[in-house]
Design a protein around this nucleic acid. Structure first.
Ligand code: MN
Ligand code: MN
Ligand code: MN
Ligand code: MN
Lengths: 211, 211
DNA sequence: ATAATAAGTTAGACATATCTAAAAATACAA
DNA sequence: TTGTATTTTTAGATATGTCTAACTTATTAT
């Protein structure tokens, strides 16, 4: 249920109402599984369900989702900061630890980390009341030629994207100058440092959030 | 399955063969639940099962149990040492985290803690191959009048026992002198420090392992 | 040795979470 | 508007882990 709710929340951020089919795709289950789970979530008051209508997350659902996302992101931060994992190694562990029911545990982790505001991928960590501070970042792919920006967060942090970025020496906080934008496919040539130039595809740049 | 196996291991330490009924009691489930679970554990080669015979844990079962116990005890140690939880607060959290499937996670915790040999209750932490170093401690209740001993471990670490000890200022490593043994009920008067004398019941002393 | 008690097993139920196949409702498009 | 495609739902199966009630086997005591 927690994984469903988290997924619903993520889809909701992109689009107010959610198609059962999309949820099934993201969860890697079939439509009937989602259909029956949604009814349970609705019973808990976390989503609004009416037959044949798209799914809507409720206020209490958002709060509940934020709790789980908070645990996930605090865990990822803990793994990177305290246990020195790389940013591409933490997600699958956090995916498990986020379900641990022990508020004091996450409170202590939070304290130990000095109350971080974002996770190792730049995503905001909800506070313990479920409030998430919106980030005013823009896509690197929306930047103009000549702009100098700082990498602040990733949109989706698939392991393969993280590895690609690591290989190219790109990390949160690094500064990028847009040198060239290819009209044909939207790929961007960036200046990373003094003599280091790299080319990133549009697909990659869509997922890099900068300021 | 992991909780069953851990429980089987704990019972095995006390008694080579295990009664299904005892396991049911410890697991807080009914006999038919144990009966069906035992068959699954047997399929995995972790226990030997023959109808109407007592349960025997196999070598591979012991190794598997030790893995889980290792995760449990490392977690408890981490909670006390790094997150500053008290020894009576850690068990229920460890009971959950022991099921996390992420060997690298526990390796890092182990490293961060400096490869501890025992948990906050003095129980030995199995190494990553499942080997447990036996402890040569004796019960405080088996000590003679006049003996001076050090508290090394607890036999069973129920939250209520831990709280009782904390209230009386007794912790691992503290030295105790046996001053008086009451013939009637086996209760013991101990000298804790210069002018601090306390009385502990036989039941408590049975669970205090000393050297 | 027999009866009583304890321990273990089976059958059948329920809850959870998943699936496939088929049916129903809705949306879209010619 | 009418047919096609998409989305959602239902029915029925499978798997896991639990339960109660009833039955069987083993142990213990007289
Ligand atoms: Mn993640
Ligand atoms: Mn998860
Ligand atoms: Mn414990
Ligand atoms: Mn457990």
């Amino acid at each position: 249920m927690e994984n469903y709710l988290k997924c619903i929340y993520n889809l909701y951020v992109q689009n107010d109402t959610i198609l059962l089919t999309d949820l099934a795709d993201y969860m890697n289950v079939k439509a009937p599984s989602v259909n029956s789970m949604i009814k349970k979530l609705a019973k808990n008051g976390w989503v609004k369900y009416e037959p044949y209508k798209p799914i809507k997350i409720t206020v209490s659902g958002k709060r509940r989702a934020a709790e789980i996302i908070r645990k996930h992101r605090l865990t990822e931060m803990f793994l990177c900061e305290m246990l020195e994992f790389r940013w591409d190694e933490v997600h699958h562990i956090a995916e498990q630890i986020e379900h641990i029911n022990a508020p004091e545990f996450f409170e202590r982790i939070d304290m130990l980390l000095g109350y971080p505001k974002s996770d190792p991928h730049g995503s905001p960590i909800p506070d313990k009341y479920g409030a998430i501070t919106a980030q005013a970042y823009k896509r690197l792919s929306d930047c103009a030629k000549g702009e100098l920006v700082t990498l602040k967060a990733l949109n989706r942090s698939d392991e393969s994207l993280l590895k690609l970025l690591t290989n190219k020496n790109i990390h949160l906080g690094c500064t990028l100058t847009v040198k060239e934008i290819e009209q044909y496919d939207g790929s961007i040539t960036l200046k990373l440092s003094d003599k280091v130039y790299i080319v990133l595809s549009k697909t990659v740049c869509d997922n890099l959030m900068v300021l």
